[in-house]
Nucleic acid binder design. Structure first.
Length: 217
DNA sequence: ACATTAAGTGATT
DNA sequence: AATCACTTAATGT
């Protein structure tokens, strides 16, 4: 919540080395707002208009999409430090309502850039364009991979990938979640997840605790 | 100590 | 792999 422009500069250089142009850095420092979200807080919900593009500094964010017919939620991907929400760009460029929900999975800090700068930055700054394209590309690839996974693989493989990607976006092997929450993310039953996790524990791949799973290796 | 919530188990479909 | 019915374990009040 405390915004000091001096901080943003340091944070930028540390977390976003891709953003090289000095002029761009200065613009971000000038218009960016440092924002903090607590674990579990919903950052953007379905139907809301996006007014900020987030540059994640630390923490991690879960991006989900709501199924129209049933009230079910589909996990799209996680975002971590050094990334931004690809969906924000397309949504805000076309001035559309959000098709997705983003939620902080742990305490998360980000720099919010008002969307009105997007257009000009895309043409003005090469490194901004690259940054946007790069995140877009990597999330698209991730999405296609999980699509494959859902279509062709069993729950065991899906769970492993889920744990890996969650570990990747938080940077920590300790995943704080109940079996039920994990099951919801994967659209599976809690019992199935509990059994698979137990199996993984016996194989020495994870360590289980109440409300947490530690990914080993 | 008691109530509540998370996790483990076996049987059934 | 889902659901049910039930047990056991961990935690909060």
């Amino acid at each position: 919540m405390v915004t000091e422009t001096g901080d943003i500069e340091k944070i930028l250089q540390k977390n976003y080395p891709q953003i090289a142009e000095r002029a761009l850095q200065e613009e971000i420092i000038e218009v960016g707002k440092l924002m903090h979200f607590r674990a579990g807080e919903v950052i953007m919900d379905y139907g809301s208009y996006i007014k900020l593009v987030p540059l994640i500094i630390n923490g991690s964010i879960k991006v989900t999409r709501e199924d129209e017919s049933e009230g079910r939620e589909i996990l799209l991907y996680f975002l971590g430090p050094g990334e931004t929400c690809s969906m924000s760009f397309t949504c805000c460029m076309m001035n559309k309502k959000s098709e997705i929900r983003t939620e902080a999975m742990e305490d998360t800090t980000l720099i919010g850039i008002p969307i009105r700068y997007m257009d000009s930055w895309m043409t003005k700054y090469q490194s901004w364009k690259n940054f946007v394209m790069q995140t877009y590309d990597s999330k698209m690839i991730e999405l296609v991979k999980t699509l494959d996974s859902v279509a062709f693989e069993g729950m065991d493989a899906r769970l492993k990938k889920y744990l890996q990607s969650r570990k990747g976006s938080t940077g920590s092997p300790v995943i704080k979640a109940t079996h039920q929450e994990i099951a919801n993310d994967l659209n599976a039953s809690r019992e199935a997840i509990s059994r698979l996790l137990k199996k993984l524990e016996n194989m020495g791949e994870v360590k289980l605790g109440r409300n947490q799973v530690t990914v080993l290796g």
